[in-house]
Amino acid sequence: MTRTESEVGELYMILRDRKKLASILIVQDISQRELARAAGWKSHSYMGRLLRGEAKTVDAEAAVRISHRLGLPLEHLFLTVVSEKTGSPVQSERTKRGAKKSRPAA
């Protein structure tokens, strides 16, 4: 069965390292509020949750805006994930290789 456009899940981004993001904000003298505005958010509370590790995901548009504001490539800050329509994430090839288990011989 081939996938149709209606079978594709959501695209979202996972913050790779919250401490790295916090360090970048300090070095570049950017506040949480300023970065939250750049992400297109009305409030800075979610940015605070990301920096404290209470949240890990952002939508793709916010991730692109954050990376652009910080002047960094998107892949330095975020991992890209596409969820299946059922809600389970699709594994990347790298993850699949690392998660292979040995199977008993038949």
Rank of each mutant, 00 (worst) to 15 (best):
A62L: 12
Y12N: 02
W41N: 00
G9P: 02
T80C: 09
A55F: 01
A99H: 14
I66D: 00
L15P: 04
T80Y: 12
A63R: 00
T2R: 15
D29T: 10
L70V: 12
D17I: 15
G87R: 04
Q32I: 04
E34T: 14
A105V: 06
L35M: 04
A63L: 00
H76V: 14
K96C: 02
R69D: 05
Y46T: 04
G48T: 07
Y12V: 03
S92Y: 03
E75Q: 15
R18F: 12
T80W: 08
I14G: 05
H44R: 10
D17H: 09
K101Y: 11
K85L: 03
S88W: 12
K96Q: 12
Q32K: 02
V82T: 07
G53K: 02
L51P: 00
I30Y: 00
V27G: 08
V27I: 13
A55W: 01
M1I: 14
G71H: 11
S6Q: 15
R52E: 05
D59A: 03
K42D: 01
E61H: 03
M13P: 07
V82E: 11
Q28R: 12
V27W: 15
S92L: 06
F78M: 08
K20H: 05
P104F: 15
Q28N: 14
A105D: 03
T4N: 10
S31K: 06
A36R: 10
E34P: 06
S43H: 01
R97C: 06
A60Y: 00
G98C: 09
T4M: 13
L51R: 00
E75M: 15
M13Q: 01
K20G: 12
H76R: 15
G87D: 06
I66A: 03
P89F: 01
L15K: 10
K19V: 06
R97Q: 10
V81N: 07
R16T: 15
R103H: 11
M1T: 11
T95F: 13
V58T: 00
A99P: 11
G53M: 09
A106Y: 10
R97K: 10
V82H: 07
A106K: 15
A62D: 07
